[in-house]
Design a protein around this nucleic acid. Structure first.
Lengths: 146, 146
DNA sequence: GTTTTACTTGCGAGTTTATTGCACTTATGG
DNA sequence: CCATAAGTGCAATAAACTCGCAAGTAAAAC
């Protein structure tokens, strides 16, 4: 009797883009699917370790590059000097970055699209993507020192 | 007879923030004042070299950090994995980054402020700054392969 | 103008993020 | 179960950036 899958193993997503379902990839896909904020490579490595999968940084970098190349993830940089990754499937959204505690929240439904159209016309610049981050102090940090 | 200054030497700006007016700093201030796009450290080093000032990268990094700390410049990152610097005095504006040729244009008069206010209220997040970049293909690059 | 002093810089070593080549291992299809 | 193409570990390398310390220099004091 085969074990009943308590949660899907991401094999379909991976095979769907011609990537083999290795333990590290499956675990990372799962991490990305269950985390509500973009994840950096060091966090991924720690996560894998906790799961008993020890992975070389080079491998994790290669994995996230593959994921991004195949369109599974998006690579973003929040002015930290390193990259973070989030599922590409998530709808258009932006980030609130707390400059004190590093907390990252998502925000959605902004209408940057209006601006994009204006730019396309006025500047003759074909916008393919945009990046919008707000920096400041999150609710919790405001409470701490006020 | 003292030489008539053909252009101001930035000493006032530097002394005004308690920074000594060294050749490298003067030259870099001048570069930032005459360039219409954010400058990275390598470009600064090349620029200094052309001016006959050879400066160690560590020194340039220290200079731009000081400039930013003193409020002369702003540090920005355009998803390139490195920092760029521009005068802080420039009014609020954003960037169009061509993903093909790397060209960077400024755009101003967007009304992100409206969004900022909404976020402050809805998310109880005190926004202190924001970063907005549009990526795409600039006018020149569109012509080249069309 | 010279001295003094504190600020600056160069140099070397080190850190972090990220990439690459190569040999070894493994997931997948037959 | 086997073959093989894909994936991984390891080591070397690269680029961006930082730090400590000794030597140099701008600015102020004399």
């Amino acid at each position: 009797m085969v074990n009943v899958k308590i949660q899907h193993d991401c094999k379909d997503e991976l095979n769907g883009v011609e990537l083999r379902a290795t333990p590290a990839r499956i675990a990372l896909m799962h991490l990305l699917e269950t985390t509500d904020r973009p994840v950096d490579v060091q966090t991924m490595i720690s996560f894998l370790e906790k799961k008993g999968i020890q992975a070389d940084p080079a491998t994790v970098f290669r994995i996230v590059n593959m994921f991004t190349e195949k369109g599974l993830t998006k690579q973003i940089q929040l002015q930290e000097g390193k990259s973070r990754y989030e599922l590409a499937a998530q709808n258009d959204h932006h980030h609130l970055v707390c400059t004190k505690c590093g907390d990252i929240q998502d925000i959605s439904d902004c209408n940057i699209e209006v601006l994009e159209k204006e730019i396309s016309l006025k500047k003759k610049f074909r916008v393919t993507s945009h990046s919008l981050e707000f920096f400041g102090i999150c609710n919790d940090c405001q409470k701490k020192t006020s």
